[in-house]
Design a binder for these strands. Structure first.
Lengths: 192, 192, 192, 192
DNA sequence: GAGTAACCGAGACGGTACGTCCTGTCTTGGA
DNA sequence: TCCAAGACAGGACGTACCGTCTCGGTTACTC
């Protein structure tokens, strides 16, 4: 009761909106999450919606990101190679699944809708990046990975290829492909 | 892939459209390349435009792709590391430049507009992929790279991270960053 | 028939549209009353226009009908023959004038555009028919006309020929011709 | 052989066009008789079609008029009242039938398409008017009708009301209604 | 019987209007 | 005071049809 907003209705409205948006995203992807549709399903008026978010992509990013937050677990198999390989496998499976399409749509929409980018980053990328950073730090502590490479760079190296494939659809995101990518990145492309 | 009509007018119309689209893309990015705007500037009617392309994104992909085709040269520095590093540097510079934004918009639009994907692939990705494949083959012949890794996978590994950054904007695409990525991928993420 | 919206803006928009449409009809007839043109001149968006009317012909019918409502007066010369003759003369003069062409275009358009028919009837024909019915009743009361003939039939008999001529243009609509028609209808075609 | 065009192909083309147009009119009314549709079905190119007719309405008028030419017989019941009543009944039945709608569409289209009017008059109205003129002359000879009224005026008086109803749809065109109109016109509207 | 000219099918094209859709702002009246 | 309800301007979409034009092959007259 203490920490809630002075206007509890705001909170209820936000929740309704996010909930309705999630449903719409599940049913028809980002194109279905029209502001009008969100308003109609949530019972929250458009004016109120635009008081809380700058554009519809932002709503979708927050709604989808919050829901996905716990979807991908942090593995701990005892060594960096297995952990990172596992993580790449998880993420690629997520991308390949039905929600991968929504993720791609959101990512794409943020290019057009700059106002939504912070939301996408906050509710989506940051969580993932934090997870990897944690994995990476563990691996660093164990001396398993190259200390000259930042977690940032490692994240890009491991997940960039997956996102590339997801967006262009030039190749499938099967577990085998995911393994090829993670092993290539981990061991390096050069001949030893 | 494109059928050449028996009527030479077709060719003139297509050229006008592509030319106008390129101009519009330069001036205002993908959002400016409205079908109406393309029609108005090219003098080609909308009906005709829609006879040649399935949607506006396809036009933009073809126009932009054709123009970019020769923009990125194939380096030949005598060894794989330098060649691939150079290529990554070129591509990231391109992405970081003004046309990188248009590229990102196109890539994003293809997610929404599946009909445009083939055009984007044909006029954009394939050229790049072919270039890398050629570099990769040269490196393979010299025994400089891991023969267990396909050119496909290598391409994803090297350019996926750049595209990831371009789209999410979570980090700059400076030459230094590009070098970090290429070196990380080339040498591998693991400690040696 | 028209629901008045709780939002007064609706009324303003409708007024603007009808006003702009009337102007366009005067300037270039029905072909000039494009939905785009109406939208541009009235400052009302196409979407809003299509919320109020089913098709452009309906707008034109309402606009033109409302304006014409009071254009033709109800004569009262003391006897049926003079009243009806006068009315036919008025109407034929109206048809022969510049607005007759618009009337014909509207009537014709309603054939193609069934959705517009109710509008044309409500805002155009009904007013005329009511006027004749009133005249006819007066004449009936005075015993001047055949009580076996309904006002409906009389209206058709008196104005049908004018409309026939207006549409096919097979003969002029001069006052003399109007008199010939009204006298023929009134006295009957048969020899006495 | 002597009087045929120097290029018999023209004749075949005209025939094909008229035939195809008639079919289309039967199937979907005037809206279905698109120039493209006529061209496709007849196998005659659009360029050739436009060599023979000024606009599509003209084609439809000629096609439909030729086909309808003999559809309405000239009655001869021995006296004017019966002949004219019968004729009005026939015509109203025709208007009320499926082809009446096409007739109305054609009549309406000629308002918009002035170039088609001569075709409509030649292939449609003239035949009807000639029939009535012949009936009227016979009645005049027998002294059955008012010699001060021209066949022209009589035609307008008798058929104008039917066309008025056909176009506006404000009342049905049942045989009973047709009889009411013809008797009203024939006997006059005034009380005797 | 070959040459030549008119003609024709096929259909691409510019133009114009259509009616739909969605966004983000703004207004109103009720809670 | 705050909000749902939803009207609204703006602007792009993709479609349809018109009447014109261009092309290359065919036909039917001419020599």
């Amino acid at each position: 009761m203490l920490e809630q907003s002075s206007h509890p209705r705001s909170l209820k409205a936000k929740d309704s909106v996010l909930c309705a948006t999630t449903e719409l995203l599940m049913e028809g992807g980002l194109p279905a999450a029209t502001v009008d549709a969100i308003s109609a399903r949530s019972g929250v008026s458009k004016a109120t919606i635009y008081k809380h978010w700058p554009c519809r992509t932002a709503i979708a990013a927050e709604a989808f990101g919050k829901q996905m937050a716990a979807a991908i677990p942090l593995p701990d198999k005892g060594n960096a190679v297995d952990d990172l390989t596992e993580q790449v496998r998880w993420v690629s499976a997520f991308y390949a699944g039905p929600q991968g399409a929504v993720f791609a749509q959101l990512l794409a929409a943020c290019v057009t809708d700059p106002a939504a980018s912070p939301y996408f980053r906050e509710y989506f990328l940051d969580a993932r990046r934090a997870a990897i950073t944690s994995l990476w730090q563990r691996a660093l502590d164990r001396g398993e990975v190259d200390p000259a490479i930042s977690a940032e760079t490692a994240t890009d190296a491991l997940f960039g290829p997956l996102i590339f494939r997801l967006l262009t659809g030039h190749a499938a995101l099967t577990p085998e492909e995911a393994d090829k990518i993670s092993s290539a990145c981990l061991r390096g492309l050069l001949a030893s």
